[in-house]
């Protein structure tokens, strides 16, 4: 075990499935990849409301929220999460998303404040590297 004086500072990320969408294979694979990259992943499970996701992120002191959507309701649910973050004065929490999201919606969601969107086929390493750039202080 390495000796070090500075405490470890794992980045904490809430991963959530919002709305009526039971397709959780993808989010679980991402959760595992992030764990293996040294992140602390708080997985909230299925059928979360935007308010529940934001509440979990606040209670867990998470630096980022990752949303997984395969239901087609992303133009309703993702903006609702952003709105809830504004309402709770927590817009410093980074929001990223993954799932089946068409290109034209991606541009619109990014304009609204989503930091990045990963579509099917995105390599796991790409997600990890993107997070590393956003959170250079993570130890892993």
């Amino acid at each position: 075990m390495a000796t070090r004086a500075a405490p470890p500072r794992p980045v904490r990320i809430v991963l959530a499935k919002v709305g009526l969408d039971g397709h959780d294979r993808g989010v679980k694979v991402v959760a595992r990849a992030l764990r293996d990259a040294g992140y602390e992943v708080i997985y909230t499970g299925l059928r979360q409301t935007p308010a529940m996701v934001v509440d979990a992120a606040l209670q867990e002191d998470a630096q980022a929220i990752g949303l997984s959507l395969h239901s087609g309701a992303h133009m309703t649910l993702i903006p609702a999460v952003l709105e809830e973050l504004r309402r709770r004065q927590a817009t410093d929490i980074l929001v990223f998303a993954g799932g089946i999201i068409p290109d034209e919606d991606i541009a619109e969601l990014k304009r609204m404040g989503v930091a990045e969107i990963f579509t099917p086929g995105a390599p796991l390493q790409g997600i990890v590297e993107w997070l590393r750039e956003r959170f250079p202080e993570v130890e892993s």
């Binding site: 470890p8 794992p10 959760a31 595992r32 992030l34 764990r35 293996d36 990259a37 040294g38 992140y39 602390e40 992943v41 708080i42 997985y43 909230t44 499970g45 409301t49 308010a51 529940m52 509440d55 979990a56 209670q59 867990e60 130890e139 892993s140």
Partner: peptide, 30 residues
């Protein structure tokens, strides 16, 4: 994980009955 130090903290999944109740606070820890 003993290798990466990362974790998947999943206890909240089974404690959904109290979401949004300000009298309940749940914190996951590695």
């Amino acid at each position: 994980s003993p290798y990466s130090g990362g974790a998947i903290l999943g206890d909240r999944i089974r404690m959904q009955g109290h979401a949004l109740d300000p009298g309940v606070y749940i914190r996951s820890m590695g």
